[in-house]
Design a protein around this nucleic acid. Structure first.
Lengths: 177, 177
DNA sequence: ATTCAAGATGCAAATTTATTCATTTTAAAC
DNA sequence: GTTTAAAATGAATAAATTTGCATCTTGAAT
């Protein structure tokens, strides 16, 4: 975003119209929410500031209400604002390593198994990484499109499995449910 | 909903297990939210009370998080809680046709797993329906061509799973082996 | 039987979000 | 140019939601 020199009122508002700036702001909010993962209004407030829009949490609350932006729990254990349109779980894109970290969503145990959730299409590549390392603790894996079932060897504990996998799956522990 | 006479501990808990009553409560919450228009956790607390479930707002907050229930502004100018499946702006009336009922052949349990048989080619679409609803009781699914393996969360009973799935898989109970 | 760890939960505190009230700005009507 | 009603907004406050911590229950292990 950008600013024009001059053309501001004493209070700092842009001189064209409140409606104008409001609409701009709403659009930027939409943009920010669909791009970033925003967990609170204060967070959003900071992002808006960086875009050159200075406002308060009160206004933000009203804006979000106007935009029908919902706040919902996300898979990471936190919360995220979502636009009324996209209900998909878009996620952070911190990846870029050899290991498809970015595809990894969560891992949770049940009995002697673990279910690993991935972004759609990532299951097979991640499973094959696991297989290629062939950790002693892992009996085998089966991958669908976005889910991997991992069977652990008898007598092996959950931390054992986590530790073994962590050796080549950075950030895994943070995904543990 | 209903209560059994007796069988309660001094603190008022149902004597079987905390997990049991929690799962029950989660189901009732789901039901209440999809039936009524709930605008706050306190409101939901009262509804729960009427159903015979006594708890606190704190627990409710955690429950809603577990169920991935979102709070979103509604047209009336207020707010409403919505189940993850209703996050979609579905324009299709009562639903039910969205689910590929015809593809479902059978469901049978073994341990903490269920094997769901489908008509050839239907496994993935049905599994993705299950995934998109993301029932609390289900850890994950993996689909082949005509078979789905479903892993249930630890501490969750078979009826719990069946009930959770039945909410969006009409006729499921008739397919139980 | 005793010990221990994991879950579930209530209470109270912390945090986050919504709303009330007063003020400012705008656009329209005159 | 004034006047005026409506819209926008901030500050403060109220209301709602989340979380840290302590406790209790349960099932597993010793």
């Amino acid at each position: 975003m950008f600013l024009f020199a001059g053309l501001y009122s004493k209070r700092g508002n842009f001189l064209f119209s409140d409606m104008k700036i409001k609409t701009q702001r709403l659009n930027v909010i939409r943009q920010l929410i669909s791009d970033h993962k925003v967990g609170s209004q204060e967070e959003l407030l900071n992002l808006l500031e960086q875009e050159g829009y200075s406002t308060t949490q009160a206004t933000l609350s009203r804006d979000l209400k106007a935009l029908k932006v919902a706040k919902r729990p996300d898979i990471e254990g936190g919360y995220a604002y979502v636009l009324p349109e996209d209900n998909d779980d878009r996620e952070d894109g911190d990846g870029g390593d050899v290991f498809p970290v970015s595809g990894l969503e969560s891992i949770e145990f049940s009995g002697n198994m673990a279910v690993i959730k991935t972004r759609p299409g990532f299951a097979n590549s991640i499973a094959s990484v696991i297989d290629s390392h062939g950790p002693y603790e892992v009996l085998g894996t089966i991958a669908g499109d976005d889910t991997i079932l991992l069977i652990s060897k008898e007598g092996v504990s959950r931390p054992d499995v986590i530790n073994a996998l962590s050796l080549f799956m950075p950030g895994l522990k943070k995904k543990l449910v």
